[in-house]
Amino acid sequence: MTRKKRRLYFVILGLLAVGTAAALVLSALRQDIVFFFSPTEILEAKVQTEGRRIRLGGLVEQGSVVKEGAKVRFKVTDGAHALPVEFEGLLPDLFREGQGVVTEGRMGAGVFLASEVLAKHDENYMPKEVADSLKKSGHWQGEEKK
């Protein structure tokens, strides 16, 4: 019985130690595990952007998408700030105004030069009719989040 108890305490202690270690590592890595930065973080120079590939994420601003041949310009916004983006290439299916997007590239002179654009979708799933009726009745709450 005492040996069993000792093993039980040993396992609990081990789990606590591993859990604490993991929590410390994860909080230390918090910045590095971040997959993308918001326009605000980049514009307020909270992240080192020079000479470094970074990812910029946010919503594609309504009415900001302009296509010039193969080139696309749009703005990525997080509600507080919007950052102009330039991209040349194939856009994913879900790329739409008002939808989430993550772009990877470099910061140019006031413009983010993206070499890759990924669409980020939200957590809402519904048939088209439901989405339409939600929009009509004014209960729509997707897309503006974040």
Binding site: F35, K120, E123, Y125
Partner: peptide, 17 residues
Amino acid sequence: WNTLHQPASVVKMGGPA
């Protein structure tokens, strides 16, 4: 963290989305 993956849809506050 910021992820490309969207947040949880089924098990979340305020009911499933």
